[in-house]
């Protein structure tokens, strides 16, 4: 009976202490995770570097001009602007080649 009493005492103290310690650790982990939340990496824009002699407004104007020029080029390349459908006209190289095929390299007999 005495040994059972000791056993019960050990169980109560032991399990109590184990629960207490692990509950404390659970609390600590909760706090740790709460206060150490991984913050989203904020990608701060680096300080703009302007080419020498240009300020932000001039740079913006250049950028707009470049964009407009690209738009014009794009429009010129559009099907509506073309006189011939793509592939219907041979390139210059092909034209020269065909011309050469039509003329012979041998001397003209009639002239001799």
């Amino acid at each position: 009976m005495e040994s059972l009493k000791i056993g019960i005492q050990l169980t109560v103290y032991g399990m109590g202490l184990v629960f207490l310690l692990l509950a404390l650790m659970a609390f600590l982990i909760t706090m740790l995770v709460k206060f150490d939340r991984s913050e989203p990496v904020s990608e701060k824009p680096s300080a703009p570097r302007y080419p020498a002699g240009l300020d932000a407004d001039a740079l913006a104007a250049v950028a707009i001009a470049v964009a407009m020029h690209q738009a014009v080029l794009r429009k010129e390349a559009a099907p509506a602007m073309r006189k011939h459908m793509p592939g219907t006209l041979p390139s210059r190289w092909v034209s020269v080649g065909r011309t050469l095929q039509n003329s012979t390299w041998q001397p003209d007999r009639r002239s001799s």
Binding site: L4, L10, T11, M15
Partner: peptide, 23 residues
């Protein structure tokens, strides 16, 4: 973290068996 408490409960076998061994 609350899973920690399940780990604590899972140790009862130590003390329960200790009591039986004493008996």
């Amino acid at each position: 973290p609350r899973m920690m408490l399940l780990g604590a409960a899972g140790q009862f076998g130590i003390f329960g068996t200790l009591m039986l061994a004493l008996l």
